[in-house]
Amino acid sequence: MSINPEQIIHFSPLHRLQWEEAQQKDVILYPEGMVELNQSSAEILKLCDGSRALNDIVADLEEKFSTTGLKNDIIAFLDVALQNGWIKQD
């Protein structure tokens, strides 16, 4: 399973992404589990909001962090996220 660059990406309705004040990090919550995210993973997942496809996410993040060349890292992370069921494509 890997990301289809043409399709919109949604965050999974069966998971919850939220900021944890006590841990000072974003986490993914799901039945019986929690994944602690580093900042870059969290930034990518927050853009998986059902309004963007791969290239939109890359463009937004490159603009936000005033950099280029993020695409391969983002694809690699999104593939992992898809395999873990954190995100969905139709």
């Binding site: 944890e20 006590a22 986490v27 929690m34």
Partner: peptide
């Protein structure tokens, strides 16, 4: 009160 206090400490599940 229990829920509030534990949440403040960091309980999440």
């Amino acid at each position: 009160r229990v829920l509030s206090e534990a949440r403040k400490m960091g309980a999440v599940q």
